[in-house]
């Protein structure tokens, strides 16, 4: 049953690929400005064989990273714990086009946030490269600005840090204050903010530039219903401006509602990449297996999905 359901989207994507290569992705161009056409003939973001391995100290188990014996002895003498490898992202290749709203789902520790950090240039991958037509702007839950500074000054600092001209900052400041919707708290130091309030402020800062490539790492999850609504409206606006959005979330309803494509990662591996309804359905079934303790069934399912996943192959063209 499932296999049949799975076949549908696979066929679809084969078609997509063929069309894309034959007609030079003409469909993507219709909603772009003239000046952006040059850049838009290809994808907006290319994730080119990206792998990320963290070397972390571990109090359980021995060294996994080969180190020369003297280093190992020295480490032992100093009481430093051994270093193990944590593969966060495993040789991932993806291409995201203008106008796409890609959701990234997966269990905790599946490499979603790491991948977002890499795409945003906040972290270097162990191997591979990310290419983008514009600087990706990431809105994360842990981007902290200057805690001692008032919300308003933090907005100003964040805008200037993104290279916005000071006069323009003064122009857009009222609008950004409006988006943050913090009331009189906008004049308080940011360290007095609750996590939801801080999230609103960061959201306002990140949307200041009308980014072409926006990365949202559970950015809306800390907000209340009112903020979510505003946030979704603002994101719809950004999407209309021919931008693309990479979106991490654990709320499947949100993913289904907002995304045009969903990528499912599990322990750094790509399991599915396709239609939101299909992927979230499989994901929910998978999570149900895990919750019921059917680890073997879930593992078989993972192997099956990995063998069927539509992989992206990159070809370089030179203009």
């Amino acid at each position: 049953m499932r296999t049949n359901g799975e076949d549908g989207p696979v066929e679809d994507f084969r078609d997509d690929g063929a069309l894309g290569s034959l007609f030079g992705a003409d469909g993507d161009l219709s909603f772009l400005d003239e000046e952006e056409r040059g850049a838009a003939t290809g994808p907006a973001v290319v994730i080119d064989h990206v792998s990320m391995v963290y070397n972390v100290t571990s109090t359980g188990g021995g060294d996994e990273v080969p180190v020369p014996a003297p280093v190992r002895w020295a480490r032992k003498a100093l009481g430093r714990p051994p270093v193990v490898r944590n593969r966060a992202v495993n040789d991932l290749t993806l291409a995201v086009h203008q106008g796409e709203f890609v959701g990234f789902i997966g269990r905790n520790g599946s490499g979603k946030s790491t991948l977002m950090n890499i795409v945003a240039g906040q972290m270097n991958p162990t191997s591979g490269r990310v290419y983008a037509v514009d600087t990706p702007v990431k809105l994360g839950v842990n981007v902290s600005l200057v805690p001692a500074l008032s919300g308003e000054k933090n907005i100003r600092l964040g805008c200037l840090a993104q290279g916005i001209d000071p006069r323009r900052v003064e122009e857009i400041l009222p609008e950004l204050v409006e988006i943050a919707a913090l009331g009189s708290a906008i004049h308080w130091p940011m360290k007095a903010y609750s996590s939801g309030m801080a999230a609103r402020l960061r959201f306002a800062v990140a949307t200041a530039t009308d980014p072409h490539i926006l990365i949202l790492d559970e950015a809306l999850s800390t907000g209340d219903a009112q903020f979510r609504e505003r946030g979704q409206a603002r994101m719809a606006q950004i999407r209309e401006q021919a931008g693309c959005v990479l979106f991490v979330s654990h709320t499947m309803a949100e993913v289904r509602e907002m995304c045009t494509r969903v990528v499912w990662l599990d322990q750094g591996d790509l399991l599915m990449d396709g239609d939101p309804d299909n992927v979230t359905r499989e994901y929910e079934a998978f999570m149900k297996q895990l919750a019921a303790g059917n680890n073997h069934a879930a593992e078989r399912e993972k192997q099956r999905l990995m063998s069927q996943v539509v992989r992206t192959e990159l070809r370089e063209v030179h203009a």
Binding site: A95, V119, R129, R311, H318
Partner: peptide
């Protein structure tokens, strides 16, 4: 497994 071929021009994009 199916593959989806994507063409891109690294010179026209910036490496993040």
């Amino acid at each position: 497994p199916a593959t989806r071929v994507e063409h891109f021009d690294p010179a026209a994009m910036t490496a993040v």
